[in-house]
């Protein structure tokens, strides 16, 4: 079984976001594997351990993303691919889709896993976009995956309800929280990861033209949510408090 995992390097969820001149400052920030992609890596390793085969992790990003690929290798993935997108101007979800499409054109795959959404951009588009381009079936928000022969039974989270879907392979499935508990990269795993293959590919290697992968969207503005104001405690008789509250909701918060 050939399993591929799409993985993105993202800000650590603990990081504070700072914006300067419309750009997000990433100086000195800590980076991690997008947590949803981490579920995908864990699931891929478990499926491989049960059904055999190989796990390859793929990312689109700059050379810094090598660290996150190494982490996935340390968790137990077999090989890694880093697709460099630095030459692409204004890269967006479309650009990533084009690069991945070109990458997978040369590959044989039974299962492609990814995260449901990335915690930074939050578009949740890459999985479905890629499945569409590869003309394979996709299931999003998986909380359980069982493989039987050429079929995958996927339990997906639908706004709190569960839906069970059967699909035939090859398929692309994205992971939701609850799918599994990702393992820590063990120390022997970390040392082994050093020696596992990690291939870096650029646009030429994939035979993709810069212009063809240029982003289709334009970022108009970036801003942080307004800072939360301190709460107020109303005082006096209950009746008076209620009236005051209603008044504030109407005039101050303007929600009534």
């Amino acid at each position: 079984m050939n399993i591929y995992v799409l993985l993105k390097r993202t800000f650590d969820t603990e990081e504070k976001i700072e914006i300067e001149n419309g750009e997000i400052i990433d100086d000195g920030a800590e980076f991690i594997i997008n947590p949803y992609d981490e579920y995908a890596v864990e699931e891929a390793i478990q499926i491989r351990d049960e059904h055999g085969g190989e796990v390859s992790v793929v990312t689109v990003g700059d050379e810094e993303a090598e660290k996150q690929l190494r982490t996935a290798l340390a968790m137990g993935a077999d090989q890694a691919y880093l697709i460099e997108d630095e030459d692409i101007e204004n890269g967006d979800e479309y650009s990533t889709q084009e690069l991945l499409k070109a990458f997978f054109a040369e590959k044989e795959y039974d299962l492609i896993l990814g995260g449901n959404v990335a915690v930074d951009g939050g578009s949740g588009q890459i999985g479905p976009r890629l499945a569409d381009q590869l003309d394979i079936v996709h299931v999003t928000s998986a909380v359980d995956i069982t493989l039987e022969g050429n079929e995958a039974k996927v339990e997906r989270d639908v706004e709190g309800d569960q839906e069970i879907i059967s699909v035939s392979l090859p398929a692309l499935i994205t992971a939701q929280q609850g799918l599994n508990e990702p393992r820590y990269p063990s120390l022997p795993g970390i040392m082994k990861a050093k020696k596992k293959p990690l291939e870096t590919l650029d646009l030429d290697d994939l035979d993709v033209d810069e212009e063809d992968a240029e982003g289709k969207t334009k970022t108009v503005e970036r801003f942080l949510p307004p800072e939360k104001q301190a709460g107020r405690i109303l005082e006096g008789e209950v009746e008076g408090q209620v009236q005051e509250l209603v008044r504030l909701l109407k005039t101050d918060a303007k929600v009534l």
Binding site: E66, K67, R70, T71, Y184, S186, L187, I190
Partner: peptide, 14 residues
Amino acid sequence: TDEHDMIAKTTEDF
């Protein structure tokens, strides 16, 4: 090295 960072991270997460 990157390995040092990963070892530190595994320990800290654990």
